[in-house]
């Protein structure tokens, strides 16, 4: 088993067996995080540059920890307060960093397609850590890993994705990823926040008629974050209204199967998209997701840089 690409930009590029390969590899790496000495020499002498054009505490620290545990040399740049201010283009920034011969870039950008753009400039591997509203492939892989630890078979697994689907790179990647493994996807959102089309490469994607319907039949519930700005652009009336009609409450959750897996990519707006009590009472897998995130990111760097070693 191997992966034949330099970069991880989109889940669309991955076959079902690619996804399983990433997840199986991540399971191996997870063992390292459970050891007393959480470090292996796998990527010793390799350089990874994390470029974040958008602030992110969670994803960035997850990648940084993954790199440290693999003994890579890493550097994190938050670009918003450096070159961009000086007027340097994305291309020039990358060409300069490229000259320092890194082995991989981890890229987060507020513009869709940024990771793709960078992957064309550099010979190094590129891991998309979230581009605009487009995709967040490592989040998808860690979500799949978290579910795979509980559910063996993804065939006709029912995955409800609820919230701001239209603007969610997590939703986009999850829809592709879960449906490639045979799951059925049920979307629920204010209709102003649903995607315009639901063609996802032949995946079984449906629009649920109500929040209750989406929750009741689900094996997995993925709640998405709603941003306050959505009210200013008329996608929703107000956060108060959103809370009233689109929040996952204990009452709603009680209608679901007892073994339902509740996920959220974070950061959570407590009592906006999900009741705080659901998190407090440990009814979600949110912290499992964070834990698995490190393992997935270790696996991604290992696989992509490993490919570079063979083909570079």
């Amino acid at each position: 088993m191997s992966f034949q690409k330099k970069d991880l930009i989109t889940i669309k590029d991955l076959s079902a067996s690619d996804i399983n390969y990433f997840v199986e590899t991540a399971k191996e790496f997870k063992k390292i995080s459970l050891k007393d000495i959480k470090k292996v020499p796998t990527l010793r002498g390799k350089t990874v540059v994390n470029i974040f054009y958008e602030p992110s505490t969670r994803t960035r620290s997850s990648f940084e920890i993954a790199q440290k545990r693999l003994s890579a040399d890493s550097l994190s740049i938050t670009v918003s307060q450096s070159s961009v201010v000086k007027g340097e283009s994305l291309k020039d920034t990358l060409l300069n960093l490229e000259a320092m011969k890194p082995d991989a870039f981890v890229v987060r950008h507020s513009e869709s397609g940024a990771a793709h753009f960078i992957s064309k400039i550099t010979k190094a591997s590129v891991v998309n850590a979230g581009d605009g509203i487009n995709e967040h492939p490592t989040q998808c892989l860690l979500d799949i890993m978290t579910v795979a630890e509980v559910k063996k078979d993804f065939k006709s697994l029912k995955v409800a994705i609820i919230g701001d689907i239209y603007h969610s790179r997590v939703a986009r990647s999850d829809i592709y990823g879960f449906s490639k493994l045979g799951a059925e996807i049920y979307l629920y959102a204010p209709h102003s926040l649903l995607p315009r089309m639901i063609e996802y490469g032949g995946g079984k994607v449906f629009i649920a008629k109500s929040m209750e319907e989406a929750v009741k039949n689900a094996d997995v519930i993925i709640m998405l974050r709603i941003q306050k700005e959505r009210a200013s652009y008329y996608f929703i009336p107000s956060i108060e209204e959103y809370r009233n009609f689109f929040k996952l409450t204990p009452e709603l959750l009680s209608k679901a199967d007892k073994k339902v897996i509740v996920l959220h990519p974070g950061p959570v707006n407590r009592d906006v998209e999900i009741s705080g009590s659901i998190i407090n009472e440990n009814k979600t897998h949110i912290f499992k997701q964070v834990e698995n995130g490190v393992a997935v990111r270790m696996a991604c760097l290992y696989i992509l840089i490993g490919y570079q070693k063979l083909n570079g």
């Binding site: 009210a231 200013s232 008329y234 929703i236 009336p237 107000s238 108060e240 209204e241 009233n244 009609f245």
Partner: peptide, 14 residues
């Protein structure tokens, strides 16, 4: 829209 002003949505669900 709130206040019929055409600037933001009224609380339609409510």
């Amino acid at each position: 829209s709130k206040g019929l002003k055409g600037v933001s949505l009224a609380d339609i669900g409510k």
